[in-house]
Design a protein around this nucleic acid. Structure first.
Length: 636
RNA sequence: GCCACUGUAGCUCAGUUGGCAGAGCGGCUGAUUCGUAAUCAGCAGGUCGGGGGUUCAAGUCCCUCCAGUGGCUCCA
């Protein structure tokens, strides 16, 4: 049986004249009908269906239920439609099977079911909704059912015209195979892997392989980022563009600086390239053709430009003009791309997880050959581990391969698993559809069990050729190198999302939220017990700032000490100092740590502890007035 | 982009069958000068997301647009 589903605003039909010599009689009112918000099910009964009509009907009902669940139509219209197949069942058998289908559908669906008569030529008017699931076709046989074909029907007699880019079309054909690779080097099919030791890892696999089915609720990081006055939506801009308040912008700057330091330490030479490019540039044109059109378009006078969706172009164009010899390689260019622009579909946007304008630390590395590519890939894998550790974000790793490449470099995959020290999720594709042969990503899990890629590195085997990037080998020959794409941290905004979601998960377990010490907007807050101690507290703050290099503020409001403690807790201030009569003449400070413990320590001891927590991470001054009384409210 | 849900004070939310726009927090003013998660009192604060319609009367019903979230699609 062939099924064609159309989710329609409305559908009406009318029987015109018999299509068979002896058509079944029409019952009154059966000759015409109409329906609105309807799932129209065109079906064709095929010759082989009669072998096991029961199974075919059961499968058809299951398919209808499945589609109905996804599109939420208000009713169902069954429409016998002979044109979906050229191997029709005899009319009497088809009619009989159709009747069985109708009865089964009526008894098992919660929505009203209508049907069009069998054996007549009918006219119909149909207005389809046009969303991705509005049109689906399925084929069912007495044995097993074939998978659904989304995105429009592909009836046997016709083929869809190539209306989309090659890349998009290719992705649809992409078949993934999933495995788990352990640090010991054992590769197991994911479905047969024992996940019982790590349910989070299993959730990660399920999300990657199947997508999520989570309950509808706002992600916690959105509430947190606004309540803590870090970041907010900007209604005056396009969707997916954000405003950063002083505290959030401080964190963003620190993350950017840390990322740049880490990448430059790994050999990245920092550059800056334009954010907009000429649509008609020949090399870019070919490149754009490889991707779905999701750019912001900029019209200026009579020319069109697009805003970059990554820092790739700028760096390709630099590499193209460079003179590189074998001994120079690997050559690494790095840009803190502020910003990359992607006009994602509105429904794909989600808080700081998916934006239209974002900050991407982007490094490209030109390498001579595969050996060098692997060595660099491993080094960048390690740098990414360092990044994630510095942010104190737990994560899972996915490594994706073209199968042929995996088979030739299985030892390298094992090296990665060993380096990670825990099992890796491995995805393999039978063919290479993308420009890369392998990549990895690090994914934190959010509160709703969704994954989002942060660190990622890819080995690109295509773009050096496309952009004419070459080097001179030791034998004097001009050669085309390989290229690595790397975003060691991933998008900076997404790192903030990951920090907040990680803490939301901890808080859901009853723990306290916290930021890594080096990112906390206020690192130390001094609470004078009353107005009389404010001056002394301010003096102490200045001293601490000078000696420990920390961000120190003073809660000089006319509030009780309990209230000040509470507010410091809600702001996740890591160290709180109560300052009153007891401390005034004493060599000891009263320190309250984020974990609730309290300690008496000297200034020197405190300075030592702060320096240790801060490590070598970047510093920046307090983003707001030191005296809390002088701070405006950015958001209630 | 499609489907669903949501949008009321700066924030979080209540608002009955259509009938005078509400609370808590935050802000301001005053009192209080306090020892480890919320001191007390008073005051101000509204284009009920925007526009259109139905009605004697719309936060409430209808249409439309915008935004947010979830799912689908997508994620260079």
């Amino acid at each position: 049986m062939r099924l064609l589903f159309v989710h329609a605003d409305e559908m009406s039909f009318e029987a015109q004249r018999p299509a068979l010599k002896a058509p079944p009689p029409l019952s009154p009112g059966e000759e015409k009908g109409s329906a609105a918000e309807v799932l129209v099910v065109f079906y064709t009964v095929e010759a082989r269906d009669v072998e096991d009509a029961g199974s075919v009907v059961a499968q058809a009902v299951e398919n209808i239920q499945d589609v109905l669940r996804q599109v939420h139509a208000r009713e169902v219209l069954l429409y016998p439609y002979a044109h979906l197949s050229n191997q029709l069942a005899p009319p009497d058998r088809a009619k009989e099977l159709g009747d069985r289908l109708r009865e089964k559908v009526r008894s098992s669906l919660s929505v009203p079911v209508r049907w069009a008569p069998f054996g007549y030529y009918k006219s119909f008017v149909l207005r389809a909704k046009g969303h991705p699931l509005a049109e689906l076709s399925r084929a069912i046989g007495p044995g097993s059912s074939l998978p659904a074909t989304p995105g429009g029907p592909s009836p046997p007699k016709t083929s869809a015209p190539p209306t989309e880019s090659q890349a998009l079309a290719n992705e649809k054909k992409l078949v993934s195979h999933w495995y788990v690779l352990t640090p010991e080097g054992e590769l197991t099919e994911a479905e047969r892997y024992d996940f019982s030791q790590d349910p989070d890892f299993q959730a990660f696999y399920r999300y990657e392989a199947q997508g999520s089915r989570s309950a509808a609720e706002e992600p916690p990081h959105v509430r947190m980022m606004r309540e803590m006055e870090l970041v907010d939506y900007e209604p005056g801009a396009d969707a997916g563009n954000f405003r950063w308040y002083p505290k959030g912008y401080l964190m963003k700057r620190l993350l950017e600086e840390h990322a740049s330091n880490l990448i430059q330490a790994a050999g990245g030479m920092r550059v800056e390239t334009p954010i907009m490019y000429d649509f008609e540039h020949p090399a870019l044109k070919k490149y754009l053709d490889r991707f779905p059109a999701r750019q912001y378009i900029l019209r200026s006078e009579d020319k069109e430009y697009f805003l970059r969706f990554a820092a790739c172009f700028g760096q390709y164009l630099i590499f193209h003009d460079m003179v590189m010899s074998r001994k120079d390689l690997p050559v690494r260019l790095y840009e803190l791309a502020r910003f990359a622009f992607r006009r994602e579909q509105t429904g794909e946007l989600s808080g700081l997880r998916r934006l239209r304008t974002f900050t991407m630390p982007d490094m490209h590395t030109v390498v001579a050959d595969l050996e060098q590519a692997k060595a660099e890939f491993l080094a960048q894998f390690r740098a990414s581990q360092t990044w994630m550790a510095d942010l104190e974000i737990p994560y899972h790793a996915a490594v994706r391969f073209v199968r042929e490449f995996y088979d030739a470099h299985a030892d390298f995959a094992k090296t990665l698993a060993r380096t990670l020290g825990k099992p890796l999720l491995v995805e393999m594709w039978d063919e290479r559809f993308f420009y890369f042969v392998m990549k990895f990503e690090f994914h934190p899990l959010d509160t709703q069990g969704r994954a989002a890629a942060l660190s990622t590195v890819q080995i690109d085997v295509e773009n050096c050729e496309r952009f004419g990037i070459q080097y001179t080998d030791s034998d004097g020959q001009r050669k085309t190198p390989l290229l690595l794409h790397a975003s060691i941290p991933g998008a900076i905004e997404r790192n903030v999302y990951a920090l907040l979601e990680t803490e939301a998960r901890r808080m859901a377990r009853g723990e306290k939220g916290k930021f890594p010490f080096w990112l906390a907007p206020t690192q130390i807050r001094i609470l004078p017990v009353s107005d009389a101690y404010v001056d002394a507290a301010l003096e102490l703050a200045e001293r601490l700032e000078a000696e420990a290099g920390a961000r120190v503020d003073v809660d000089d409001r006319e509030e009780g000490i309990g209230r000040k403690i509470r507010d410091a807790e809600l702001e996740w201030v890591p160290l709180v100092l109560v300052y009153g009569e007891k401390e005034k003449g004493s060599p000891h400070l009263s320190v309250r740590r984020r974990d609730g413990t309290r300690a008496q320590m000297s200034l020197e001891e405190l300075v030592r502890e702060v320096r240790e927590s801060q490590g070598t991470h970047p510093r920046a001054p307090l983003p707001l007035p030191r005296r809390i009384r002088l701070r405006p409210v950015f958001r209630g």
